[in-house]
Nucleic acid binder design. Structure first.
Lengths: 138, 138
DNA sequence: GTATTAAATCGGAATCATTCTTATAAATTT
DNA sequence: AAATTTATAAGAATGATTCCGATTTAATAC
């Protein structure tokens, strides 16, 4: 996934081109880590002085619906990152400080599938937490 | 873990005996599933008319600090359940409707440990979601 | 290039879960 | 029973997120 592809996808689906959307996507591209809504506001508020949370949340949720962003919930906050280009299902090692990630290729559901009689499995979450190089120092 | 042991633990640690704590613990014992603060309030509000969220949250957090309750975060809510009696590390299959659980004995971190150079791992989360028998019907 | 239309944005209010504060009440100790 | 310490109620405060009405803007039709 990259910015151009994402903007194309928006167009295909009948959504409009706006500078704010473009800049939001560029931000996720540049950062390539999990960001919260407030991080996005922080990054763009200088360029767009009246930028509202509503706009950010609306677009984050749109991007995530279109598969442009991946999402997780960490410490009571929704976090978003550019969908990884690796097209196969995978998980992440996540820095609790800055949101930076590393891939985990092996999915526990493949290695030893979980199932239970009468229980309809619909999804799973596997995340490993810690602190990245840079964040350990501070 | 059971109600009596939990109340003993409270006493050992210098906390006071109150009917509300006892009833909260009994509730978790009876339900044996993940409950949110509002579920606890709902269950006890008839017996204790002025029961406040503060009391519930304070006690939930105390119980969880003492290892009496396990906790997870689901759909933006903190959820709590009686700590499983199996004393070894394990995970859960969780019903998204009612919070009922099944054990998953195998931990993905044992099967194929995740590590990464320069990344200090501090924890992980593995949960499988779905719908239990009863909740599938409705 | 202007008019039309549908979608996007702003600004602030509303909501929801959770935490904090201060005064009062209850449990434990003496 | 009095003194001490912890627990509680009630409501205010907080933080993240969503909703709403009015306005603006992008895409499309003319």
């Amino acid at each position: 996934m990259n910015v151009d592809k994402a903007m194309e996808k928006l167009k295909e689906e009948g959504y409009k081109y706006t500078d704010k959307r473009m800049d939001m996507l560029q931000l996720f591209k540049d950062e390539s880590r999990y960001l919260a809504a407030k991080d996005v506001l922080e990054a763009l508020k200088d360029k767009y002085k009246g930028l509202s949370f509503d706009t950010i949340y609306r677009n984050l949720s749109l991007f995530s619906d279109l598969g442009i962003l991946e999402t997780t919930e960490l410490a009571g906050e929704k976090k978003f990152r550019f969908t990884c280009s690796t097209d196969h299902h995978h998980h992440h090692l996540i820095c609790l400080e800055c949101g930076k990630t590393r891939h985990i290729d092996e999915c526990p559901m493949d290695v030893s599938p979980v199932s239970a009689e009468g229980f309809a499995v619909t999804g799973h979450k596997f995340e490993v937490y810690g602190y990245c190089n840079e964040c350990q120092e501070s």
